[in-house]
Design a protein around this nucleic acid. Structure first.
Length: 270
DNA sequence: CGCATTTCCTGGTAGC
DNA sequence: TGCTACCAGGAAATGC
């Protein structure tokens, strides 16, 4: 299909979109939390359109319910009428990007070259793919003195983990979020590997975690929030041991854990 | 280089 | 009621 930029808010959040005219979106792929859309110009794959939804970004074929949050509108059919941002348009061959908090990003990059996106460039294996194994996890963690929480959020040991899922996986594996990665109990790493896979698989099956804004592409909320064991449960009883779930701020991120199920072996040197 | 901290951004909500 | 302050977080930018 053709991809013609109709309108986007100016500024650095949506870069290179003026090069979309004349290109075709040939596929929709994903690496971690980034969408990768290979573009064809006269049959040649020269650029990728990278999209990150951020916290509240939503792609849709139908106009967003709240037009004031429309940020980007692409006309996928030649000859479509122009769109003014902030005004919903009738259904058509369009792709809308709505984003309340403006954390989402669009970027055109040279095909397969992600040097402008350091997180994508350095991203670890897909969590549900064959390249993510207990051995690769152990090897990655051995390379960093960062707190487990921080390092898992970096996308380097494994792709795709966000704040909620790191907390849940560490609880399942019995690892303290402040534990330096290289000091983590190696005997627990197979459990961490499995916990990461299980948490993500279960959440996907539950259509995700809807705390506030998250909706599936069909507009429904997910239900994994009903199965969270630590995230958002500070002050409540651990469902495994009955201790009180605690909350910390690590790397500026709210972190929830059970002090009894997740003992800290060593403090980080500083 | 490695790691910590700050920044971006809006809506919801607590507190007064 | 209406106002201010604060919180939520993925990744980049900035600081040390």
């Amino acid at each position: 299909m053709a991809a013609r930029l109709e309108a986007a808010e100016p500024g650095p959040k949506y870069r290179g979109l003026d090069r979309l005219p004349g290109q075709q979106i040939s596929a929709v792929e994903r690496r971690g939390k980034f969408l990768v859309l290979p573009l064809l110009r006269q049959g040649r794959h020269l650029e990728d359109l990278i999209i990150h939804l951020g916290m509240t970004g939503v792609l849709s074929a139908a106009p967003p319910e709240r037009p004031q949050h429309l940020r980007v509108s692409l006309d996928l059919s030649p000859g479509g009428a122009p769109v003014i941002l902030g005004e919903a348009q009738p259904d058509g061959d369009r792709l809308y990007f709505s984003d309340i908090r403006r954390f989402g990003r669009f970027l055109l990059t040279p095909a397969g070259d992600y040097r402008e996106l350091p997180t994508l460039q350095a991203m670890g294996p897909e969590p549900l793919g064959p390249d993510f194994t207990p051995a690769t996890l152990e090897a990655a963690l051995a390379r960093s003195n960062m707190a487990l929480k921080t390092y898992l959020l970096s996308q380097k040991p494994v792709a795709g983990l966000g704040n909620i899922y790191v907390d849940e996986a560490l609880w399942r594996a019995g690892l303290h979020p402040l534990e330096p990665a290289l000091n983590a109990d190696v005997a627990k790493l197979p459990a961490l590997h499995q916990a990461i896979r299980d948490v993500l698989t279960e959440s996907i099956a539950a259509q995700g975690t809807t705390l506030n804004d998250y909706r599936t592409v069909s507009g429904d909320g997910g239900s994994f929030q009903e199965r969270l064991q630590v995230y958002g449960r500070s002050g409540q009883a651990c469902r495994r041991c009955g201790s009180t779930i605690e909350r910390l701020v690590i790397g500026g991120r709210s972190t929830h854990y059970c002090p009894r199920c997740q003992p800290l072996r060593s403090r980080r040197r500083r």
